[in-house]
Design a protein around this nucleic acid. Structure first.
Lengths: 111, 111
DNA sequence: TTGACGCATGTCGATATCGGAATATAAAAT
DNA sequence: ATTTTATATTCCGATATCGACATGCGTCAA
């Protein structure tokens, strides 16, 4: 058995820098593959393949218009990542950490 | 060239379910490898290898005590992931999205 | 109809995984 | 000194990538 497929889940899909770059390049707009090739500096096949992975995990949606394809980011697909990593936020966020301590004290006081 | 190494950055390190599981298994405690083997159901070499990857990207810290090794999560290493994914939060958070619209309107009003 | 354009897909070689089994290292116990 | 315990490392076969290049397919233009 080898490493999990990049299309296995969102975590695997965004592990590649180029794919995060593509998502950032699209941003809040609707982009054509050609525009992304220009913005990213990647080859056209590369962009298409990376978009294929992003599409497979639901991170982008496509709309066909003639021979052009308009891609847009579908952010909600990132929620699993956000939810998972958010649980660790208090580890570097001092304010949340102090809130944690406070809640711990309150729980310790009440029998 | 092949896929980036799992030790290349935090994104690659957490792309594996087993490694996220280990981080969650450690939680806020300090764990020994044996405890993690028991909790995760993975083999001992597996656990050691995954911990090696997590250690390489700074996601865990170790402390030696005799022949035992105490591992703990070093959360701040996750900040790059959090920061990146947080930019997309407004895509699924309706309240933030409306705030975005409001800010856009305000900016459109002022010349 | 022929050709140019926009994008997707296939092939290839190189590589870095993954799990499993065996082995190595190091410390404690007998 | 030997053996057991706790953990790390190595070797193995299988596999899914990645980039580069070539090709296929649908669409618009001349």
């Amino acid at each position: 058995m080898a490493r999990a497929a990049t299309t296995a889940d969102v975590f695997n899909a965004i592990s590649e820098v180029a794919r995060r770059g593509l998502l950032d390049a699209i941003g809040r707009e609707e982009c054509t593959v050609g525009e992304l090739v220009a913005r990213s500096g990647l080859s056209q096949p590369q962009v298409s393949k990376h978009l294929g992975v992003l599409r497979a995990v639901g991170l982008v949606r496509v709309r066909s218009e003639g021979r052009r394809r308009w891609y847009r980011v579908h952010g909600p697909a990132l929620k699993p990542v956000y939810d998972w990593v958010r649980a660790y936020e208090r580890t570097w966020n001092a304010r949340l950490d102090r809130l944690d301590d406070l809640l711990g004290e309150l729980q310790a006081e009440s029998p």
